[in-house]
């Protein structure tokens, strides 16, 4: 479930990055790296698990699925927080800088 959610997040952020120049300015590429990197790594994990467990891999217990869903949401939230922090540090639109400068002037 975590892998699925990360793959969906990767695909959605790639589409947003592709169609929107504003998104590219806002460093959405950082999300792409994180989600695609994690998706590929969890894919390896899933293949290893499948090789060990066989078809049972596709029939997870409800409690495991719930926990994995919760983890998937948390992973996406963490990635978004990292992206926002990166965005504020880089400040590509200069919003933060101009806000701080205008406060200094008063």
């Amino acid at each position: 479930m975590t892998l699925l959610m990360t793959v969906f997040a990767a695909v959605i952020s790639t589409i947003i990055w592709y169609i929107s120049s504003k998104a590219r300015e806002l460093k959405v590429g950082v999300l792409l790296y994180m989600f695609w990197g994690a998706s590929l790594m969890w894919l390896v994990d899933a293949v290893v698990e499948y090789l060990e467990a066989g078809a049972e891999f596709f029939e997870p217990a409800a409690s495991d699925m719930l926990n994995d869903t919760f983890l998937g949401i948390s992973v996406i939230a963490l990635a978004l927080v990292v992206w926002v922090i990166y965005l504020l540090i880089k400040d590509p639109a200069g919003t933060l800088k101009s806000n701080i400068l205008s406060r200094k002037d008063h």
């Binding site: 975590t2 990360t6 590429g29 950082v30 792409l32 790296y33 994180m34 989600f35 695609w36 990197g37 994690a38 998706s39 590929l40 790594m41 969890w42 983890l71 948390s74 992973v75 963490l78 990635a79 990292v82």
Partner: peptide, 20 residues
Amino acid sequence: RWLNGMLWGGSGLLAFEHLW
């Protein structure tokens, strides 16, 4: 830089999973 992004980003999120 693309490779670094994927490696750092992916291993960072996996580290969070291991913490979880």
